[in-house]
């Protein structure tokens, strides 16, 4: 659905995006992550056509976005990190003028506006001037504006930045529902723990380059050299730690008193090895409450991938 190849963006002498290629399929929710200055926003702005790339090909839903920008823009919705609004217009008026901009027929314009206001839970605020809305509400209003043309592809640049926890939860729910409708979403954010809840794939950028891209499982598999286990016992945690450290295939074992968990790192990823280990522990009369392989979140993955590539 989003095909970017060979993209380069320059600002004066500084190259913000360097020969970047990314291909996101229909219905995917891809998290674009990277530190500040990695080139995420430049990539997004180039994809939506706000920034003229030095070179590169961008296709949105099969349409060449640089050859046919107006057609591509109908398939595309973009929400920047700081969403501006016309402060002197009421919420419905704000959406109405963009409905005109998106060439939605006058006969169904009002209906579409009400629909989108309802989707972002702003129906009650329809007659309130946009300037009087809180930051979270403004973000939602801008999201409603972005959804007006019913875009197949959504690009959200730091949508949760500056929002309070409640607003973040609401936004997360909206994004989740959009993903469930089968839209392709490319989302950049620093709050990686939240992104891991709805992203199906990830693209990690560093200094303008794409370091890795793929489904979260693929990237985890690529960068995981071993497995981490999280074990909780009724008692004898320290005894188990010493017992584990004497076994083959265990790289490290640490007891975290505050979390009341034993964290064990294994060499290798075979599931059979984990099953054997559990059986042996039971045979050795350790009273196990929980035993689970620990899934790495995007945060750890990003740190691991970033550190590896930079080094």
């Amino acid at each position: 659905m989003i095909q970017v190849s060979d993209l380069r963006v320059d600002y004066d002498d500084f190259c913000a995006v360097r020969e970047l290629s990314i291909n996101i399929g229909a219905g995917e929710v891809c998290g674009l992550i990277g530190p500040n200055g990695a080139g995420k926003t430049s990539t997004m702005r180039a994809i939506v056509g706000l920034l003229e790339p030095t070179y590169g090909t961008i296709r949105i839903a099969g349409i060449d976005a640089r050859e046919h920008p107006e057609a591509a823009q109908l398939a595309l919705g973009f929400m920047p990190d700081f969403a501006p609004v016309y402060e002197d217009l009421k919420c419905w008026e704000f959406l109405d003028i963009f409905a005109a901009a998106y060439k939605i027929p006058k006969s169904i314009r009002k209906q579409r506006v009400e629909q989108e206001l309802e989707r972002v839970s702003l129906t009650e605020k329809r007659n309130v001037p946009a300037g009087a809305l809180s930051r979270g509400m403004r973000q939602r209003l801008t999201l409603a504006k972005t959804l007006l043309p019913d875009p197949k592809v959504l690009l959200l640049d730091e949508p949760a930045s500056g929002l309070d926890p409640n607003a973040r939860i609401e936004l997360k729910q909206i994004i989740r529902s959009l993903a469930s409708e089968g839209r392709t979403v490319l989302i950049s954010s620093h709050i990686l723990s939240e992104m891991s809840e709805f992203c199906t794939s990830v693209a990690i950028m560093e200094r303008g380059r794409m370091i890795v891209q793929g489904s979260i499982a693929e990237v985890q598999a690529k960068y995981n050299t071993g497995t981490e286990l999280q074990i909780r016992l009724l008692d004898r945690a320290e005894e188990l730690r010493d017992w584990l450290l004497q076994r083959e295939g265990v790289r490290s074992a640490e007891f975290d008193e505050s979390a009341d968990h034993l964290f064990v790192k294994l060499i290798g990823k075979e599931e059979a090895m984990m099953a054997n280990l559990l059986a042996d522990m039971c045979r050795a009369d350790f009273q196990i409450i929980s035993f689970a392989p620990r899934r790495e979140g995007l945060e750890e993955l990003f740190l691991k991938v970033g550190a590896k590539e930079v080094s």
Partner: peptide
């Protein structure tokens, strides 16, 4: 996610 799109240098410029 796949990355099988081969960039075309002529197209990209």
């Amino acid at each position: 996610m796949t990355n099988n799109h081969v960039p075309n240098p002529i197209e990209s410029v």
